[in-house]
């Protein structure tokens, strides 16, 4: 009943035409762009990879074989588990956690400075210089990082010039370029939620804590960070989800030995030509990421609604 009344009010408030347009747009967005693709992926992941002729035929039945493959590998795999894919999976999640923490540590001071210390024009200039690099295409940015971190790149040149290194270091092999690239790719998604949260904190509270003798770290620990927790959660969730699901940066900046889980998914879809298996891998990644985020939120006592703030 409540739902019907809500929609009645919605139509009364916005008029028939506008209401239909708004509802239509939102429903289209949710159904066609979010729900349906995921449902098809889910359905796909439980099917065999059949030639087109067999689709819909007697062989086209549901199976868990794609998930089995991720767990145990092919039937003639001598090892008990599919160590290759599973280790890539775990490494991807760990690396995403690492990138998230790195971004949090990097962005918190910047966001705090922007929200509480920077003066008008200065703050605008800083925000602008944070945003402008993102006008450049993601892939171009990744290549730019590759050049910067290359053996003849400016970073190696600088380190050799200062005498810290005697010969160029292979940043790509060491995955440093990858982490830097991923970290940089999602920096704005961390800064803006943090900035929003910290900006709404009453500056008097910071001053009150200071007045009562608190050193700067305690002010952050007891006053600013608890207040900014929804912003921190929202920023961390986005950075974690997106870096776990990133493809371009690992493709371009990853070392020859470092495989990202999304690259495996990409291979199944593309070169492997096995969409069902790719779907199964993608579903596992998605579900694990969501579960991980929810677990973290439970651990840090953040409500799901707080993210939307």
């Amino acid at each position: 009943m409540g739902v019907i009344r809500y929609f009645q009010q919605f139509f009364n408030r916005n008029g028939l035409v506008l209401s239909t347009l708004l509802l239509g747009a939102v429903s289209f967005w949710i159904v066609f762009l979010i729900v349906l693709p995921q449902v098809f992926m889910l359905d796909f992941s439980f099917r065999f990879n059949l030639p087109p002729a067999d689709l819909g035929g007697p062989k086209d039945v549901y199976t868990l074989s794609n998930y089995e493959f991720l767990m145990f590998g092919s039937p003639n795999n001598p090892e008990p588990l599919n160590t290759v894919d599973l280790s890539v999976f775990l490494r991807t999640l760990l690396a995403a956690v690492f990138v998230t923490l790195f971004d949090l540590m990097l962005c918190y001071p910047i966001a705090f400075y922007l929200a509480k210390s920077a003066q008008g024009g200065y703050a605008r200039l800083m925000v602008l210089s944070l945003i402008v690099p993102f006008w450049v295409n993601e892939i171009l940015r990744a290549f730019a990082f590759r050049i910067l971190f290359g053996s003849t790149g400016i970073i190696n040149a600088f380190l050799i010039w200062t005498g810290l290194l005697s010969e160029p270091m292979d940043f790509i092999q060491a995955d440093i370029a990858l982490y830097a690239g991923l970290g940089y790719a999602y920096i704005l998604l961390m800064i803006f939620p943090l900035y929003n949260a910290i900006e709404s904190l009453d500056t008097n509270q910071i001053e009150a804590a200071r007045d009562m003798g608190a050193p700067w770290w305690r002010i952050h620990w007891r006053v600013v960070i608890p207040f900014a927790k929804p912003g921190i959660t929202s920023g961390c969730t986005m950075v974690f989800m997106l870096s776990a699901g990133a493809l371009a940066a690992p493709q371009i900046l990853g070392g020859p030995s470092s495989l990202w889980f999304t690259q495996i998914i990409y291979q199944w879809f593309n070169t492997g030509g096995n969409w069902p298996r790719g779907s199964a891998y993608a579903i596992v990644l998605l579900v694990t990421c969501i579960a991980f985020v929810l677990l973290m939120m439970r651990l840090f006592k953040v409500k799901l609604g707080a993210i939307g703030r």
């Binding site: 008097n204 009150a208 007045d211 050193p215 007891r222």
Partner: peptide, 16 residues
């Protein structure tokens, strides 16, 4: 302010 023997009560109180 953190090392002065003063305590300030703010206009909006600024309770945490």
């Amino acid at each position: 302010p953190n090392r002065r023997p003063t305590a300030l009560i703010f206009q909006n109180l600024a309770l945490f």
